[in-house]
Design a protein around this nucleic acid. Structure first.
Length: 278
DNA sequence: CACGAGACCTGTTCGC
DNA sequence: TGCGAACAGGTCTCGT
């Protein structure tokens, strides 16, 4: 499920609290129930528990699509993959159907990692870079300039769609926001990265920042039964709108498969790249 | 290096 | 109605 805006929304709620739930920083971890063993990437379950219990959650944040909790000693990281979610509930609430890991915290609350498809993973490590060390730059980081981005694009001839999904190239984009960003930038998803002009690179970075910013402003997207809250799904321009008119020109949106991922674009606004053809 | 297929999983929706 | 196929917000590994 979650891409950068959804993870950012969850991180912000866990960190600051909301009218419905208290903030987590400052709380002690009193207990841990691991209900699906493979959810824990590392360390082994016994060591996980002995190292985790008694620690305090100091800060909560996001890097790419990872959520991180800085603890008294070390870091607890979550990746929600396709269907993960983090839910705060009153202590003693019975386990829900797809709960994979439930942490008991002081203040009579529990934090549940719920994940229908079991793709999500949890790490407890000494250094945060053991998990997020090879991620690419944050797209919303102002330190990433259009010039940097242009140069970065020209290091490869890979197609834009799979390249933007590559977290070592840029951290945080997933299938939805990539399709939306390419549409805003009027770029075909199969365009070779090193064929972009400086102007096109500027528009692509702007498109990425616009869709991510809009997604965050609307608290992310809620596509199916998994995620609740956001409403960005009501503002998709091309994603899962196959056959519907392009909001720009009215041409029906087309769906193709790229790297085994559904890919949606407007064939009029985003014409295929033609070598030597301009 | 770049790409495609398969694996990991469950649940919903689509097509016959 | 029923049933299998296709599809879903992600990433890793392997083979070519």
């Amino acid at each position: 499920m979650p891409e950068l805006p959804e993870v950012e929304t969850i991180a912000s709620i866990l960190c600051q609290g909301s009218p419905e739930q208290p903030a987590l920083p400052g709380r002690h971890i009193l207990g841990a129930d691991l209900l699906w063993k493979r959810t824990l990437a590392e360390p082994a379950p016994g060591e996980f528990k002995s190292r985790l219990l008694g620690q305090v959650i100091e800060t909560i944040g996001r890097r790419g699509k990872f959520l991180y909790f800085q603890l008294t000693r070390g870091w607890l990281l979550f990746h929600l993959r396709m269907s993960g979610d983090l839910l705060v509930r009153p202590r003693g609430t019975p386990f829900a159907t797809h709960d994979r890991l439930v942490l008991q915290l002081d203040g009579d609350i529990q934090l549940a990692f719920n994940d229908a498809r079991k793709f999500g993973r949890v790490w407890l490590v000494e250094e945060v870079d053991e998990v997020v060390g090879n991620l690419g730059p944050e797209p919303l980081d102002e330190g990433l300039t259009a010039d940097d981005f242009f140069i970065h694009l020209h290091t490869t001839r890979r197609q834009l769609k799979p390249l933007l999904l590559d977290q070592t190239f840029l951290a945080g984009l997933g299938n939805i926001y990539t399709d939306e960003a390419l549409n805003l930038a009027k770029l075909h998803p199969l365009t070779p990265a090193n064929s972009l002009t400086q102007d096109q690179a500027v528009h692509l970075l702007e498109g990425i920042r616009t869709v991510l910013g809009d997604g965050i402003a609307r608290n992310g997207a809620s596509i199916d039964w998994v995620y609740r809250g956001g409403e960005f799904q009501n503002y998709f321009r091309v994603y899962q709108r196959t056959g519907e008119p392009c909001p720009e020109c009215g041409t029906p949106i087309v769906r193709i498969t790229v790297g085994q991922r559904g890919t949606h674009f407007c064939p009029q606004c985003q014409p295929a790249y033609i070598p030597n053809g301009g």
